[in-house]
Write a protein that binds this DNA or RNA. Structure first.
Length: 477
RNA sequence: GGCCCUAUCGUCUAGUGGUUUAGGACAUCGCCCUCUCACGGCGAAAACCCGGGUUCGAAUCCCGGUAGGGUCACCA
């Protein structure tokens, strides 16, 4: 039996980073076993659907390089892969259950449902549908339907039954069927609910392993019941722990930071770093290695080894990983990746010399700007910093002599600059820390930069000279 | 609240009854390198939620408590 996994997102908003994590696991597991990874769009809630929602999903998955074998844009033998185009399947199977008395029509109104809720809550019970149409005569129901009355189809959950299913990560999980309510399967607008649609589609699409979020554990009994009602073989389930907010309070949410998958890339994270981060969040390879690429992950990933508890999505490790991946890039490749993050006024010709200088200082690609701004734009200088460890007289003298020495240089390579400046420093016995820092601030306006001489060389003789002159002429000294 | 899941350093984890003075990574701190920052190297501090069992022996098994998370829709 070939392994078939799927990702089944809803086009109801930005693609969540957690969906990428889920996609990654499903993708890896399918590939590991030479199977297929399927993308299926679960757009059965017309009220929550957003414009361009499917496109968002497709773009995010592609941006992270998690391509699917069957699904939108690709097709496949079990299509269509968009649920709103599969309505007749759901209708047919819901009907089948009604015919076999495993499901029933229900005409309960919103008001009645709300009243039930309130009454249940009042006595401290879980708010649930009370089964008022469970035994309603079928003939009467059909008559009301013929008359045009809106209805839903509900699952007739058997009483006093133990529902057991096996989870790859947690083992056996048991529920009492009396705890399961008569779930709506087909809504009054003719669309299926998630529960009917997943079961029908996972079966029809021959999905063998369902890896999905832990939040689905409590609805799995409904799915088990459905599989049993249809007489279909069940897939293997693996419920993956959810991501928690950095403060550990609740599921990772937009309110407490970025959750949109594409935003991470736009903020300058490398897709391979994000993927790597997602891999080791809640799972480690046998040798405890933390840096691994997709191929290695595919080879070594086993859902049974995923940790059982929810994990905090902590950006610190991502930041570290991103730096690791940036440093691994060749200069040429880094240059290519940096393109979208280079501000429009940046002088192209400096780029090749700048990249090696900032490579080990970048946490994200977006840091490029702040690390290089002073190379091409005149910085504002804080004179207090200039005078931090020396008198105005000394600083003035240092600046003047440095200016003269640099002005007369024919060669402004970093070696030439270094030679001249070191000579000055030694000749006058200036303290290195003070002198170099003063110069750094004078030329760049910053306290932390790449090495001074390279930096000056990249800025260029004319500009360095002009910046020094300006300081000497200013009244602040 | 009912039901379900979970519980090792701040964070992610290794550990599957004795090999453990509980290991690694990130973060933190210190030292080295050094013109600053970063990179790199070395080092430090830092955890088995609590209480009962089982056992010669428990981070590891069982039970209870506690805490956290999830879920209770004609949303997925």
């Amino acid at each position: 039996m070939t392994v078939r996994t799927r990702l089944a997102p809803s086009p109801t908003g930005r693609m969540h980073i957690g969906s990428i994590a889920m996609a990654l696991k499903n993708y890896a597991f399918a590939k590991k076993h030479g199977g297929q990874f399927i993308l299926r769009i679960e757009d059965t809630d017309k009220t929550r659907e957003i414009e361009d929602g499917i496109n968002e999903i497709v773009r995010a998955l592609k941006a992270y390089g998690l391509d699917w074998d069957e699904g939108p844009e690709k097709g496949g033998p079990y299509g269509p892969y968009i649920q709103s185009q599969r309505l007749e399947f759901y209708k047919k199977y819901a009907q089948k259950l009604v015919d076999e008395a495993k499901a029933y029509y229900c005409f309960a109104t919103k008001e009645e449902l709300e009243k039930m809720r309130q009454e249940a809550l009042a006595v401290g019970k879980p708010p649930r549908y009370n089964g008022m149409y469970r035994d309603y005569p079928l003939e009467k129901a059909k008559k009301r339907i013929r008359a045009g009355e809106p209805y839903v189809i509900r699952l007739k959950v058997p009483k006093d039954q133990e529902i057991v299913f096996h989870d790859l990560i947690r083992g056996e999980i048991k529920f009492d069927s009396n705890e399961v309510s008569d779930q709506v399967l087909l809504k009054s607008d003719g669309y299926p609910t998630y529960h009917l649609a997943v079961v029908v589609d996972d079966h029809l699409m021959k999905i063998t392993h369902v890896m999905r979020g832990e939040e689905w554990i409590s609805s799995t009994p409904k799915h088990v019941l459905l599989y049993q009602a249809f007489g279909w073989p069940m897939p293997t389930w693996a419920h993956i722990p959810v991501f928690l907010n950095p403060d550990g309070k609740g599921k990772m949410s937009k309110r407490k930071g970025d959750v949109a998958a594409l935003d991470f890339l736009e903020k300058g994270y490398l897709k391979e770093a994000v993927l790597n981060f997602l891999m080791i969040l809640g799972w480690t390879p046998k040798d405890q290695r933390e840096i691994l690429n997709l191929d290695e992950y595919v080879r070594e990933f086993n859902p049974a080894d995923i940790s059982h508890n929810s994990v905090i999505f902590d950006l610190k490790k991502l930041n570290w990983l991103n730096g690791v991946y940036i440093r691994k890039l060749s200069d040429a490749k880094l240059k290519k990746r940096l393109k979208p993050f280079i501000p429009s006024g940046f002088p192209e010709k400096k780029l090749d010399r700048v990249i090696p200088l900032i490579k080990e200082r970048l946490v994200t690609l977006a840091d490029f700007d702040k690390l290089t701004r002073f190379l091409w734009q005149q910085p504002s200088i804080d004179s207090k910093l200039l005078l931090k460890k020396a008198t105005p007289e000394l600083v003035k003298k240092q600046l003047k002599l440095t200016l003269e020495a640099l002005e007369s240089l024919d060669d402004f390579s970093d070696q030439a600059v270094e030679q001249v400046i070191r000579k000055l420093q030694e000749k006058h016995g200036w303290r290195k820390r003070q002198y170099f820092m003063m110069l750094r601030v004078a030329v760049t306006g910053e306290k932390a930069t790449p090495p001074l001489f390279e930096t000056m060389s990249v800025i260029g003789q004319e500009e360095v000279v002009s910046r020094l002159k300006e300081i000497l002429n200013s009244k602040n000294l």
